[in-house]
Design a protein around this nucleic acid. Structure first.
Lengths: 193, 193, 193, 193
DNA sequence: TCCTAAGCGAGACGGTACGTCTTGTCTTCCA
DNA sequence: TGGAAGACAAGACGTACCGTCTCGCTTAGGA
């Protein structure tokens, strides 16, 4: 049933399916995409799909974690250590990958993407805070909550940006983000430091 | 086709359908609810449903705006004028209506609910700001963005609260909310004042 | 799920489906016919099919019993009472309806058709015998067995006839049938009479 | 692709597959048996199966002709020359191999088995007739038809017997068979002799 | 004894039909 | 005669098989 080995064929198939889904998400809303659409695009058999993924959602999740992971690597190399969050780099990335982001931004994908972001951002903020403070136990507000706060606001910004057709440069969006999120973050961290 | 009059029967039918949907949302996730489920629960014929609403989403939206409106009335009478946002009252309301909130909190409903909140919060903040500042044009950050920021954080808090089984009292949650959102809000409004 | 009423629409749908199946059986072997084929031909929705019949087999059975019943009526009016079995009339009918018979003769249908024949022939022979003998209890060979014997041989003849492209006239085939089956039948009935 | 040589391995594989099919036919109806079932039972790879047989039907046919051939040998040694058809021996064999017969008796197998029987019976009757008459050309009814008649009735008997749980001894069944088939056979052969 | 071609297992894959499910339309019936 | 009941077309879903295929492993039989 499920492919047990992880040989070339298996990877190829998964790649084809993922690519097909993303392509299609650029053409129509996620909910409107049929599994058959994906199969046709990927030139893959129905049963093969179900031997790799349980669901359309399952495939999406899998793709999102791929994207998130790729982003993660980029962020690391972009020097995430210098600030609490390399937001500017992320906004640039978002604009650069506008079509991909567009695809993930609405419908079912938004939720999953947000979750992924939050986990990533949470871990980054943790690292950042550890390099500033000795202990994170003295925080007034639970760290996961802070991470969700930052991530959720991040997504708010991206949404708003897209609703304005990405007219503003990333720097401007990042400035807005900083203005929204930094006063609170600094207060939270200073108070407890 | 569409019932034109707004007589007793019409209102009764709409009420039955709305109530049935809400009931069902307490039992299973919104996406899992079938129109047939609603019909069975409301004891209403299929064509009747479609003569009142175009969609399941349409019915949900209709119910949400009812809820939002009711909330709005409550908030007004609770003295929303004293702060930028009567968040404590809202958290109390949320806890009191925990099952209903629970139902709306995940899946498709979350999005719509958030949107509704944002509109309401946006208008409240506008009113609040007007009572503080002379003009809202001097703002560094567009007002809708601020509203989204506040609303989105609000939802983050509610989610986090529910994930911890509403163990904390509303006051504590509101304190967290204030800590997260107020420093930034004050800065934004002071700077531009 | 299942249509409860038996109104015009219901009957119309069943008729369309039955007709489509028979048409298709004239074009390709029964096993090769897809339910989708039937739906396309009948211009009926998939779910509608399954709300009337459980199966392709179920539909076939239903059609066969229709045919059998129609035959039954014909046979009655053809004066079945004069002989043990109005075989000549049946052979004529078979030749006349050659395409229909052809369709039912091979594959899955044969079995069901044979069963149907046997039941019909069995009841006819019972009636015939009762008009000859006083009691059927004195038979050396159980009556159902005799009926199966006659019916099975009948089908053998039809098969053989079709394999020779129906070249012989019905009278000749009936003569062969009589030669095969009558000596034994007469012996069986005389012995026990 | 296809094994060219007929070495030990090849024979072993074919035997395993045949045995697995028969075993499974004792457990569930032929149509319900999956090729995967056979592979699992025989512990043989999928491609190996298809390198030996084209089909499940193909394998069945192959097995049936094995059985028929074995029967043939038995019948020869049982003294088939003394009567037109050594039916009693066959009925005994059937009862002895009840489970095997059971397996072959319904569904797809019946057809093939019947065909096999008919060929065998046909050749036996031919031999028998040659020992009685000088020429077989004077027959009123074509010989293949007679063979089909006899074989078909034979299967009718077996079926009826199994439906009555093989309660009767083979002798009794054979007596019924003789009563059904012999009067006609004798008449046919006498008339033309 | 070695070596090489064949038989083989394992199982991924494309394809196709199935029976289920839900949606939104359309027809019939009834009050 | 207008609204409720529910039959219907449409079509996606996830499941089950099928027959093809590509791998390596093993295993005999000729050098």
């Amino acid at each position: 049933m499920k492919p047990v080995s992880d040989d070339r064929r298996t990877r190829r198939t998964r790649h084809l399916l993922g690519a097909a889904l993303v392509e299609l998400m650029l053409e129509k809303p996620y909910e409107a995409i049929t599994i058959q659409d994906i199969l046709d695009r990927a030139d893959v058999g129905r049963s093969t799909f179900y031997s790799h993924y349980t669901d359309k959602d399952n495939l999406l999740m899998s793709e999102i974690s791929r994207v998130i992971h790729a982003l993660d690597v980029n962020v690391e190399s972009a020097g995430a250590h210098r600030s609490l969050l390399p937001s500017l780099e992320l906004f640039r990335h978002v604009k650069q990958q506008r079509r991909l982001t567009q695809a993930f931004l609405w419908g079912r994908g938004a939720d999953m993407l947000t979750r992924g972001f939050q986990e990533q951002i949470s871990s980054h903020i943790q690292v950042s805070i550890r390099s500033i403070k000795d202990s994170e136990t003295g925080l007034d507000v639970p760290l996961p909550l802070i991470a969700n706060f930052a991530a959720s606001t991040f997504v708010v910004l991206i949404r708003w940006w897209f609703e304005h057709d990405l007219r503003q440069p990333p720097e401007e969006i990042d400035a807005l983000y900083q203005k929204l999120v930094m006063p609170s973050l600094h207060t939270l961290l200073r108070e407890s430091g």
